[in-house]
Design a protein around this nucleic acid. Sequence first.
DNA 1: CTTTTATCTGAACAGGTGTTCAGTTAACCT
DNA 2: AGGTTAACTGAACACCTGTTCAGATAAAAG
Lengths: 195, 195
Amino acid sequence: MARTAGSHSQTTGPRVHDAALKLFARHGFAAVSMRQIAAEVGVQAGALYNYTPDKQTLLLDLMRGHMDALLAERAQRGKHGGPLERLEEFTRFHIRFHLERPDAVFVSYMELRNLSPENFETIEALRRRYEDELEGILRDGVAAGLFAVADSKIATLAVIAMLTGVTTWYRPAGRLSVNEVETIYWDMVRKAVAA
Amino acid sequence: MARTAGSHSQTTGPRVHDAALKLFARHGFAAVSMRQIAAEVGVQAGALYNYTPDKQTLLLDLMRGHMDALLAERAQRGKHGGPLERLEEFTRFHIRFHLERPDAVFVSYMELRNLSPENFETIEALRRRYEDELEGILRDGVAAGLFAVADSKIATLAVIAMLTGVTTWYRPAGRLSVNEVETIYWDMVRKAVAA
DNA sequence: CTTTTATCTGAACAGGTGTTCAGTTAACCT
DNA sequence: AGGTTAACTGAACACCTGTTCAGATAAAAG
């Protein structure tokens, strides 16, 4: 056998990414073999190398895709309004965005150590750009006398850690809607940085 | 060759745990081989099986050791005082304890998925006991009219996520002492749950 | 309908995996 | 000093690892 019926790069490519994301999130990058990914796609292991030069790059592509999507969606929002409005917008956006892609979040936060130093820097730079957006909001709020934080960088990291934490416990079938979760967290964020 | 000069169970046992903890934290459970652990200890792979029945149990023991230490140290503290004092005590304890053992924290939070379902339940039960301590404090504070949180369980998870986040950025050689970090976070926690 | 091209198979490569165990040696006990 | 035991080696087991590639086949192009 060789080329299979209905095979097509435009469908197999995304399927490889989807399968890898799902399996990396469940079992971890190192614990997943190329043969497992291939089986999930319904293909032999060798075929994967039409879509990625190696396993490392597959991981990098998944992470970069996640960070690019994060920054792209963020760029279309929350540019107007005062610090308080922008902080609420950031809070709700962060929660919603992360709850919509739990697998990508899991992989992006857990598999950083499996990136080569060079690839790690690439991803870290994107993450810093995102953090800088929140820090800018906090700084503006402090300057306007609305917020009081001892250290804007630490406050940024603290808020992001708190918000990202929702992904560890939230289940769609649970008792709270995403909107309710957003509201509860926004209440805590607002108070935590309030003057 | 066989038994090596100076070999002793009481020294090798802890060394196996230390080496495994260090390597699991750096590279991840699945990415570390028994031979790498053995090499770190200065021993052949087979010798490790005098100290653990298998790799899985080695991971479980590391995690359980971490959680036991957490609960044991916690049990000797913060039983007296009002909700505000107990919350401050919890906040400072959590940060200090976690910053003192970054490897154990890393492993305990990242490798949960590598535990068998049964072992996972064991660790989760210990984690819930710890979370319940914080939730108790928050509930007491709400009852006393000192705190205002929409949902005590979510507030608990949010606070713990925020506090544990310090381990991702704190470096001993950095510009802040542990005590300064504690104070900055305590300020945010206090305000976040304040009435 | 024929030719070209994209896609995938199946086997192979060199090396690594967790785990077991007979045999060897150092440390301890009397 | 001699016997016993705890600690470790080194080899072996069956199997899995990422990656490569010649060959086969379906889809696309002419």
